[in-house]
Design a protein around this nucleic acid. Structure first.
Length: 563
RNA sequence: GUCGCGAUAGCUCAGCUGGAUAGAGCAACGGUCUUCUAAACCGUAGGUCGAGAGUUCGAAUCUCUCUCGCGACACCA
């Protein structure tokens, strides 16, 4: 990026300051083909001003420009192409990576500000499906990316642990459930009861009344209801914990919906005080016409609270507890409109962090184009997908590297890595039609591909033995290493972009490009050849290993040294 | 119906604030392991960038219209 300034400065001078550095800077581009230079300036914009053909302008500029800071500058048609001094650039980039190690790419843009992240949010007594995977891994990656940009992320697992479904669950459990089964396999059995309830209540609608009654008891602190609710919650959390362990993801808080129950009245009172409430068709609403939005329904006509009531309480709690610089919600794109309403209500209430509330939407996961649904039984269990992926990784290791020391651990890292990376690889807004074979791919643009590239890098470094790379010459100037070096230089900019866009795929895509360029380098260059550039090549290999590992870490993917 | 998102190779997707012959991966076909891990590398083939108009020296990229798909549109979350 500093090179763009270098180029802009030189150009501005060559143009006798007809254009300022600021004018030129955004016009500098990177040619897709490195044969056309490392940076380029298209001269079309000057054609009118100078009343000359762009080709002529380019030629004139090359004639006048001070080339001393570059390898060389040449005109190619209407473009002025700049070729950087490879040796110096290489020295600068590799030194930066090796000096800063895993802190390379770190910036302090966030100034230590707290950022609350509402993520994962599975429902108690329901299995974690591929749908929750998205919120979980995107949220986790966004958290790491924010940290890399100087923020302090606070990951909140906003559990779905309250609502009328618990009335149904209690009813179902009391009718068909038994303690032993739930203890043995909590989620599956609780779901079984829940599904059965929905099947049967179609013919026996009176069951709904029973369920409603149980939920009312729960809300009123009935002993039996509360005991069951607590138990369901506890066994569910244990089951969730196993999956989170497998993913290597932790949370800072688990404040579910129930946590905010006693704060709902304050929300309603506060809305009332501020004169924001009105009645409409029996319900209590906040009018949002000035935001061009439909009214937000705060209380049902029977006085019961709604999801938004709890979310307002949550946002206020976060605001008061953390004074967040941003308040993020990693929730599916189907709730985009809802989050506009939520934000609008909070703005009306004057909640300070409301203007920095961001919904981070992601696309839907479907199977054969159909939505997943626990009730219909159309569901893909995350745990099963993870286990299958780990099993395949194990098989691969048995074939390809049977002597690998810690096979179990590596199989887990690779198997889980494939799934997580697969989810983060593409822009999060894209819908995903689930296909198991696609998920379990370990070749091409996949997590294991990146892991493998780094494992090979580590393998070379082991063979090279202990070398103090901080002191070695790092001036590489060959064509093979050039793309790798330029990509290493690009990492800090990618870290920023990923943060600005809350988009882990920026990092995933970057890691693929770096891994690919390194694999190419590896295939064409004998790194351990004993010549004068050997140490410089090792510095490059070490740098690649560092940046690949760090990229994967930002995605929540482990990087085994051997695989 | 209104609003939002999307449409690029057989499939899954990139394509940065408009720029030089539209790129990957998978699938297909063909090469490369006595030498740093072949989960890799190299090559061949594959596209009227949904359609049309406009802005521009220049449009996959910006604007408008249309078509198709998905989603959201008050008492679920």
């Amino acid at each position: 990026m500093e090179n763009k300034e270098l180029v802009s400065n030189a150009l501005s001078k060559a143009l006798d300051n007809e254009l300022s550095v600021e004018d030129i800077l955004p016009k500098i581009e990177r040619p897709k083909d490195s044969k056309m230079g490392d940076l380029a300036f298209p001269t079309f914009i000057l054609a009118k001003k100078f009343r000359k053909a762009p080709q002529q302008i380019a030629a004139d500029v090359v004639e006048k420009i001070d080339q001393s800071s570059f390898d060389h500058v040449e005109a190619a048609g209407p473009y002025v192409n700049f070729f950087l001094d490879k040796s110096n650039f290489s020295e600068d980039v590799l030194s930066a990576v090796l000096d800063q190690k895993e802190n390379y790419g770190q910036n302090e843009d966030g100034k230590g500000g707290n950022v609350t992240i509402d993520m994962s949010s599975p429902n108690i007594a329901k299995p974690i499906s591929m749908g929750h995977l998205r919120s979980t891994v995107i949220g986790n990656s966004v958290a790491e990316i924010l940290r890399k940009n100087g923020y302090n992320p606070i990951k909140d697992n906003h559990l779905g642990d309250w609502g009328t479904q618990f009335g149904k669950l209690i009813t179902a459990y009391l009718m068909w459930g038994n303690e032993e089964d739930v203890k043995k396999d909590p989620i599956n059995n609780l779901v079984k009861y829940y599904v059965k309830f929905h099947k049967i209540d179609k013919e026996q609608p009176e069951l709904d009344d029973v369920a409603r009654d149980w939920f009312r008891k729960l809300e009123n602190g009935d002993e039996q209801a509360t005991k069951l609710w607590k138990w369901f919650r506890e066994v569910s959390l244990e089951a969730f914990g196993e999956i989170y362990d497998k993913l290597g993801i932790t949370f800072d808080t688990y404040n579910g919906e129930a946590f905010y129950n006693d704060k709902l009245q304050d929300v309603v009172d506060s809305l009332q005080e501020k004169g924001l409430l009105s009645k409409s068709q029996g319900a209590t609403i906040v009018d949002l016409q000035k935001y061009d939005l439909n009214p937000a329904l705060i209380l049902k006509s029977d006085g019961a609270s709604l999801y938004i009531t709890r979310d307002i309480a949550t946002a206020i709690y976060r605001d008061q507890t953390y004074h967040p610089a941003m308040n993020l919600y990693v929730v599916g794109s189907e709730q985009t409109y809802y989050f506009k309403q939520l934000k609008a209500v909070l703005m009306e209430m004057g909640v300070p962090s409301a203007k920095n509330l961001h919904h981070i939407p992601f696309g839907l996961i479907t199977v054969n184009g159909k939505k997943l649904s626990t009730r219909s039984g159309r569901i893909i269990l995350l745990d099963e997908v993870l286990n299958e992926s780990i099993a395949i990784a194990k098989k691969q290791i048995a074939e390809k590297n049977p002597d690998l020391p810690n096979r179990e651990e590596v199989a887990k890292e690779v198997g889980v890595g494939a799934i997580v990376f697969g989810d983060l690889k593409n822009e999060k807004i894209n819908n995903i039609d689930f296909n198991l074979e696609d998920q379990l791919r370990f070749e091409g643009e996949t997590g294991p591909y990146v892991q493998y590239a780094r494992a090979r890098a580590e393998s070379i470094l082991r063979k090279a033995g202990d070398i103090d790379l901080s002191k070695v010459d790092k001036k590489l100037n060959d064509a093979e290493s050039w793309n790798v070096i330029k990509l290493l230089n690009d990492f800090p900019a990618r870290v920023k972009m990923a943060c600005d866009e809350f988009e882990p795929s920026v990092i995933a895509k970057y890691s693929l490009r770096l891994a690919k360029s390194f694999n190419k380098y590896y295939a064409h260059t004998k790194i351990l050849d004993d010549d004068e550039q050997r140490d410089a090549r090792l510095a490059l290999v070490k740098s690649v290993s560092i940046v690949l590992k760090e990229s994967l870490r930002l995605l929540g993917v482990k990087a085994p040294d051997e695989m």
